[in-house]
Design a protein around this nucleic acid. Structure first.
Length: 816
RNA sequence: GCCGAAGUGGCGGAAUUGGCAGACGCACCGGACUCAAAAUCCGGCGCCUUCGGGCGUGUGGGUUCGAUUCCCACCUUCGGCACCA
């Protein structure tokens, strides 16, 4: 054993190297002097910024270690790497903590940021700390406000009195996306509906581009694209007008199946539809209709959806089918939703499950108008599926047309008579961004009695959050209590006016932070155009699947809006996206309530950050969910100790300078190839660890191989992105320096060619022998060698093989 | 119900283009060292076996000389969406 060998003490060396990197500005990447003409290969490696809860969890550890390996590898292969960090620092938890424990949300947040920053630094991730941002800092949210006003100028931010989802516990409005199964995403409370004046972003204007520009993305997980596509929910169809004589009015319905128009046997209005009240006034059963509508509105959307049994009430009135003049009964039923399409439908029970169930229950007519090409459908059964070969029946002049032809022909016919048109409907709703809470970015708007809604002038930004005493929400924003702050003068007419008291959804803050990182101290603009165009799009974005829809779609929307505003020169923010899998323990997601959380701090204490970093990636494919093993970190710690020992043992040997031509040298070159290929091309991170472990095992098995120093240096160099502290320390002890800037090893191709290979011989598909043969033998020689084997002969039974297959340098397969 | 992902030893996982299933690690078993233990090192470790071999990657089928890998059907688990006309 090396006489100077001291024990491997992670705590000491990790602290030491974190300081060295810091002093050397090892990971600081200044912007190029002239970004517009910069030539260096740039790589923007970004992980989703953390919400500063005060405690780093395993999801963070995986997320940022993953990004760290990519960053180190890119740097050492000659890229200029941007790798920033920041905090998504506004939001409810800090405000709730302030309400619960006293103090100011800002103090709570800053305390949490300090705590999580300390933990982040302990992990030794290679971050450019000069670019750190917090979305709650006035220097940041000034520009969030500026961008809001930009969108306002573009007509993309508007106010709307709307029924909104309201969480009675958090006392705030929720975006559609924050309602999960009728409950508040955050606290699980059942959601109510309220009418409030709300700020909205017109994301629906970008629905088509959000779909079409997916083609511009370099590499996104297919499931994320699918989720976004479903969320946008584009569907092509027709808007068709049904006449209601009593009101002398044409009521539009949306349908994707205009080909079934002749089969419309009744008409249904959503309970919230404005016409419902007018029917109630005229109808004999007006009270019954009103009661039904009231009852349906009061029901939770969850109940409404879960209720398999259809309910509804007949109005006593009829609508006229524009295609054949048929009078069909008008019903009110809660299976029709006011916020999709037009809030009214034509019901075609013969070809729609829901309409069928309703018709069955209330004894309404069912008329088949579509027949599959190869058969009849029995009466009384809905034929719901559709095929391009389906044919129309009972449809007057359109009989015999195929279903797709009829779709366009019928709409064309109606269009000619002003009774219908082609339309496209989206499930996507506009983004409701108002929040009636304190701890968020103030909306920079003033309300003036004479001028109306007036934007705060750019020169007066930021609109600072006022200091208030009481954060408890009372159905309106806590900001309303800051009367001195609310009272202001109108920027337009100078008269008395009041400030907007809502704050912004925190998703607004995180919809542009990746742009701010490129130019974090700019006090003239949110970012410079040249710099942002130089760094963006993000080359590799890494984060959890939970942001598949909301954050990622909002950020894409923002980028497109800023592109239209001429502020950025790219249409998509994230070229490549990678979603890390979730980590489970005892079969469940780690959470405080389940008591199955593992604290990174404790593990760092016991085994060091390097061992934790190594294990979190070694445990399995980064993109898959996997089970945490309590002994895992101990295992990787053991490996690092082994590496430590192997290096010190080698220090006792005289270096030979041999880097080729020995079995160990070959193993080292193979490992270089494997690790590089896995990280770069395959984007897998668990197998490189296994490869380096194999190399280290090989070194300790063959201590007398002349290439041992080369193998040792290779192992240290390759493990560096995973375990940078120990790698730097060992590198130094090997008499080298600055491993972080050391070029990534390159495999010598000539060393990868082997002299001999193990030839597998199969008879009837079963392996019967393995023979060591020289590399590159011609097929005939391989066959001869294989047939010479006694084991093979025993299975051939003296017979001549009927067929023989040869894979050069690999395998011979006989069939008898 | 619809869409998507995944099912491989006791456990996490590997097998990159259809060619040796189980790399690497954990756990476990045996041995060395030790008064002893820990640590470390060496060896073993899918199941069955008459020791020839047979079986084996969720289940059943198919294609192929050959399938964890490709195709069809099904089962299970997880995730997303869900009365979206």
């Amino acid at each position: 054993m090396h006489r100077d060998m001291d024990a491997y003490e992670p705590q000491a060396i990790e602290r030491k190297w974190q300081e060295v990197w810091d002093q050397a500005d090892a990971y600081v990447t200044p912007n190029p002097d002239d970004p517009a003409h910069a030539e260096a290969r740039k790589a923007y490696v970004l992980e989703m910024l953390p919400y500063p809860s005060g405690e780093l969890h395993m999801g963070h550890v995986l997320n940022y270690t993953l990004g760290d390996v990519v960053s180190h590898h890119r740097r050492r292969t000659g890229w200029s790497v941007l790798r920033p960090m920041g905090y998504d620092a506004f939001g409810l938890p800090a405000e709730n903590a302030a309400i619960r424990d006293g103090g100011h949300p800002r103090e709570v947040t800053n305390r949490n940021i300090s705590a999580i920053r300390r933990q982040i630094k302990r992990m030794g991730w290679s971050i450019d700390w000069t670019r750190e941002v917090g979305t709650h800092e006035p220097e940041y949210y000034r520009w969030t406000q500026w961008l809001f006003l930009k969108l306002y100028d573009m007509g993309l931010a508007y106010r709307k009195q709307a029924p909104v989802k309201w969480c009675p516990k958090d006392q705030t409005v929720l975006a559609n996306e924050q309602v999960v199964e009728g409950r508040c995403e955050r606290c699980g409370t059942e959601v109510e509906t309220r009418n409030l004046e709300q700020w909205m972003f017109k994301i629906t204007d970008y629905a088509d581009r959000l779909l079409d520009d997916m083609a511009l993305l370099e590499s996104w997980p297919e499931r994320v694209l699918t989720m976004q596509r479903n969320w946008i929910g584009r569907s092509e169809g027709g808007e068709i007008l049904f006449r209601i004589e009593e009101f002398d009015e044409d009521v539009p319905v949306f349908t994707t199946r205009p080909d079934t128009l002749f089969g419309a046997t009744f008409f249904v209005l959503a309970p919230e539809h404005p016409l419902v009240e007018r029917f109630a006034e005229l109808a004999d059963n007006g009270e019954e209709i009103r009661a039904y509508a009231r009852h349906a509105a009061a029901k939770k959307s969850e109940e409404r959806a879960a209720n398999e049994d259809k309910t509804g009430v007949f109005t006593g009135f009829y609508a006229t089918n524009p295609v054949n003049g048929a009078k069909i009964p008008i019903w009110v039923a809660d299976y029709v939703l006011m916020d999709y399409g037009t809030g009214a439908i034509m019901a075609v029970p013969a070809h729609d499950d829901r309409d069928y169930a309703f018709a069955e229950k209330f004894g309404l007519d069912i008329t088949h108008v579509i027949r599959p090409a190869d058969g009849e459908v029995a009466d009384g059964v809905a034929y719901v599926s559709s095929s391009p070969t389906d044919v129309l029946v009972n449809s007057g002049a359109f009989d015999g047309l195929s279903s797709p032809d009829a779709k366009s022909k019928i709409v064309e016919d109606l269009e000619g008579r002003g009774l219908g048109k082609q339309t496209i409907n989206f499930r996507l709703r506009d983004w409701l961004l108002s929040r009636q809470r304190y701890w968020g970015c103030p909306i920079p708007i003033v309300h003036c009695a004479s001028c109306g809604v007036v934007p705060v002038p750019e020169s007066e930004l930021p609109v600072l959050l006022p200091e208030i005493e009481d954060y408890v929400p009372k159905g309106k924003s806590p900001l309303a209590a800051a009367e001195d702050w609310v009272a202001t003068t109108c920027p337009s007419c100078g008269g008395p006016a009041s400030r907007e008291t809502d704050t912004m959804d925190t998703f607004v803050d995180s919809s542009w932070y990746f742009l701010r990182y490129t130019d974090p101290t700019n006090d003239q603009a949110p970012f410079g155009r040249d710099v942002v165009d130089y760094w963006l799009p993000v080359n590799q974005y890494i984060g959890g699947i939970e942001h598949a829809i909301l954050h990622l779609m909002y950020a894409r929307f923002f980028t497109k809006a800023l592109y239209d505003a001429g502020l950025v020169g790219f249409k998509e923010p994230f070229a490549r996206l990678f979603n890390q899998g979730m980590i489970y323990r005892y079969g469940a997601k780690m959470s405080k309530s389940k008591g199955n959380v593992v604290s990174p701090d404790e593990l760092i204490e016991r085994f060091g950050a390097d061992a934790l970093r190594l294990y979190i990636l070694f445990m399995g494919p980064a993109d898959q969910d996997k089970e945490w093993q309590d002994t895992g970190v101990e295992g990787t710690h053991r490996f690092l100790q082994r590496l430590w020992r192997v290096v010190h043992e080698d220090l006792d040997r005289e270096p030979t300078g041999v880097t080729t031509g020995t079995p160990l040298a070959r193993k080292a070159h193979e490992t270089i190839l494997r690790v590089g290929d896995d990280i770069e091309r395959r984007f897998v991170f668990n197998t490189p660890v296994a490869a380096v472990m194999e190399l280290v095992n090989e070194i300790s098995r063959t201590p007398d191989d002349p290439a041992s120093r080369f193998a040792v240096e290779t192992a240290v160099s390759l493990i560096h992105p995973y375990a940078p502290h120990i790698a730097e320390e060992l590198w130094e002890r090997l008499g080298r320096e600055r491993l972080w800037a050391e070029p990534w090893p390159v495999a010598d191709e000539s060393q990868l060619v082997k002299d001999t290979v193990e030839l597998v011989v199969q008879v009837n598909g079963k392996v019967r022998d393995k023979i060591t043969v020289a590399t590159g033998l011609p097929e005939a020689d391989l066959i001869a060698t294989a047939r010479a084997s006694e084991k093979v002969q025993a299975h051939l039974g003296g017979a001549e093989p009927k067929k023989t297959f040869v894979v050069p340098d690999k395998l011979v397969s006989f069939v008898v």
